[in-house]
Nucleic acid binder design. Structure first.
Length: 271
DNA sequence: ATGGGCACCTGGCTGC
DNA sequence: TGCAGCCAGGTGCCCA
């Protein structure tokens, strides 16, 4: 999926077409997503005006009058604003119909995405309650990262992908940020100096920020709400570049597996 | 508490 | 051409 930059690009794209519109229905073609779609969800949301469209971690928060729709894109999901008259494709699982005559259409080949409904403060929802700080927010600092890394033997790469530590850093940007900070992804989190963790915080911020400005990264499925891919792929230093020369020093990029996920790094630039 | 592994799914690509 | 095997942007849950 979509990591934070892709979710944020999606949020920006769907915000204007949704805000202030009335939900006129919800068409569900496939309810078996990561969490099965709640029965009767359409009746719950129909007739309500959309307020703001927010984001917490990789969750999109579509605020309605009596609650919030929480959408997650999983690994391969995308949301587009289209005319409901356009025939749905095989993996178009739901349409949120709007008074504007358009709809928000969710496509997700792997069905790891979800759509949840809560009447309470979404921050208190079971899936959001334990999340760490936003990487682009003020709470995410070198001091914070050093304090939570203390004593941790887990490798730094899975550590920064742990959503309880910091949210939004997925497999692409974890590798990219570690390259920019010059840190070997296999290094234990607790054996990385506070100074270097400070560099890592800056690198995560810079990487995510640049990716958002480029509309995210498209590897395979991802498209923004207008159907366009993201252009950050051209800026990737290491991700999916195994065997190719490091853009900084020419050393072949290495691929290793950590926690069943591929990690890419330059053995010369990263220590 | 921590770390590691599996599960959930489909599709695209590689190599025999 | 067909098919097995591997890989893919996430993350909740189970086990030791």
């Amino acid at each position: 999926m979509p990591e934070l930059p892709e979710v944020e690009t999606t949020r920006r794209g769907i915000s204007a077409p949704l805000r202030g519109r009335i939900v006129t229905g919800l068409t569900v073609r496939e309810a078996r997503l990561r969490w099965p779609l709640q029965r009767g969800l359409s009746a719950q949301v129909t007739g309500q005006r959309v307020g703001s469209v927010g984001r917490r971690a990789k969750y999109l928060l579509i605020e309605l009058e009596t609650g919030t729709l929480i959408a997650h894109l999983g690994m391969s999901g995308s949301l587009r604003v289209v005319s409901p008259g356009i025939p749905p494709g095989v993996h178009d699982h739901y349409d949120l119909l709007l008074s504007s005559g358009k709809c928000l259409r969710f496509n997700d080949p792997r069905r790891f995405g979800s759509l949840l409904w809560t009447r309470r403060d979404p921050e208190r929802h079971r899936l959001l309650a334990g999340l760490g700080p936003e990487p682009l927010g003020a709470d995410f600092s070198g001091d914070y990262l050093a304090s939570v890394a203390c004593g941790r033997r887990v490798a730094v790469k899975p550590f920064i992908m742990d959503q309880r530590i910091v949210v939004g850093v997925g497999n692409i940007y974890a590798s990219e940020a570690l390259f920019r900070a010059g840190i070997d992804p296999r290094r234990a989190a607790g054996r990385t100096s506070a100074l270097r963790l400070g560099d890592l915080v800056a690198a995560i911020r810079e990487t995510l920020d640049q990716a958002i400005r480029q509309g995210g990264t498209t590897l395979r499925d991802y498209v923004d709400p207008r159907g366009h891919p993201g252009y950050f792929r051209q800026q990737l230093f290491v991700y999916e570049r195994a065997g190719r020369p490091c853009r900084r020093c020419g050393t072949p990029i290495r691929r290793v597996v950590q926690g069943q996920r591929a990690s890419y790094f330059c053995p010369s630039c990263q220590r």
